[in-house]
């Protein structure tokens, strides 16, 4: 049997999630005694196969086609479904990214396959996979078994460690008929400048209503600059119009799991915790000693963020040189 991983790229660069999913695919392939096959799709992407070789795939199939320049569900689903039909793998893995979330269920339905979304762990034991997925926004953790011949899963970003591995890494071409897509991409707007993306960031600095005004985010940005962090926000700050919705962390925003999450002037409402509760280390900065954020924070600082954050910035400048 084989394990198939869908390698996500954008604008000719592999996404961080791809390294994570390929690394996990390799670990599972080793545990199950399966081979690992990676499907790389796009236009002008053949060069990326070299980069993928480092992660121990037995085979890297490249679907290089001008029709795959933009991500469209119709075109990409045709390619991934055809590749799965050719390889007949036991397991197919994608990232739980915007593309993975759109593509995986579409392909799963085409193949009548079971799919477990947003996994934080996949285990192989007694010849079968168990898929672990947080439900109720992380308030419970569910384990699923999938009974279809092809089993599919999407993996949560920033959870699975990246690991280089040796492997044959032979590169082959893959092509299939690509239908004319019924959707047309008119425009793509990337926001957030040079900052890492929320779901990929190692460190996130977030601000909430406690900032008091939209300019408060300048302070959060300064902190983020020193740490190379992404900037997030609570819903209260989004609802106040201080920040665009795509930066909202929580149940109705982004689910993130960085190494470090710094919550400034955020009370720690249950819906906010749902989005960041799986962060490895949480810092809460809040002037209210009763704030709920202190119930989950590894380190809390009770105080006015307008005093604490500037001091923290100075100290970080000092130690980071």
């Amino acid at each position: 049997m084989s394990i198939v991983v869908f390698a996500e790229q954008r604008g000719g660069t592999l996404r961080k999630i791809t390294y994570e999913v390929v690394s996990e695919g390799k670990r599972l392939a080793a545990a199950a005694g399966d081979s690992l096959k990676v499907l790389l799709a796009g236009s002008d992407v053949a060069g990326l196969a070299e980069e993928l070789k480092k992660f121990g795939a037995d085979e890297i199939a490249v679907a290089n086609d001008a029709a795959l320049a933009d991500y469209t569900t119709d075109a990409y689903a045709a390619v991934l479904a055809a590749y799965i039909q050719q390889e007949n793998p036991g397991l197919v893995l994608l990232g739980h990214s915007a593309i993975g979330k759109d593509l995986a269920p579409r392909v799963a339905a085409r193949l009548d396959a079971g799919l477990v979304s947003d996994c934080i762990d996949v285990k192989f034991a007694d010849g079968d996979y168990a898929f672990v997925h947080p439900i109720y926004a992380g308030k419970a953790i569910a384990t699923y078994k999938v009974n279809s011949a092809v089993k599919m899963a999407t993996l949560r970003p920033n959870v699975f460690p990246v690991e280089e591995n040796a492997g044959a890494g032979s590169v082959v071409d893959f092509s299939t008929e690509i239908p004319a897509p019924r959707t047309k991409v008119l425009e793509v707007k990337q926001q957030g400048g040079d900052r890492p993306e929320l779901t990929e960031a190692d460190i996130i600095c977030s601000g909430g209503r406690g900032l008091g005004n939209p300019d408060g985010f300048q302070l959060i940005e300064q902190l983020a600059d020193i740490l190379g962090a992404a900037v997030g926000s609570s819903r209260a700050a989004v609802d106040a119009g201080w920040r665009d919705h795509q930066f909202q962390v929580g149940q109705t925003g982004k689910v993130v799991s960085p190494n470090l999450y710094i919550a400034c002037g955020i009370s720690g409402a249950i819906q906010h915790l749902a989005g960041m509760g799986s962060s490895k280390c949480i810092i809460g900065i809040n002037k209210d000693p009763e704030a709920n954020i202190f119930n989950v924070a590894d380190y809390g600082i009770e105080g006015d963020l307008y005093k604490v954050v500037p001091a923290l910035i100075e100290k970080l400048k000092e130690v980071k040189g």
Partner: peptide, 16 residues
């Protein structure tokens, strides 16, 4: 196609 084996509560996060 996907069946729940079991659900459990996440390990509580210790207040730091």
């Amino acid at each position: 196609k996907a069946e729940l084996v079991q659900a459990e509560l996440p390990p509580p996060r210790k207040a730091g």
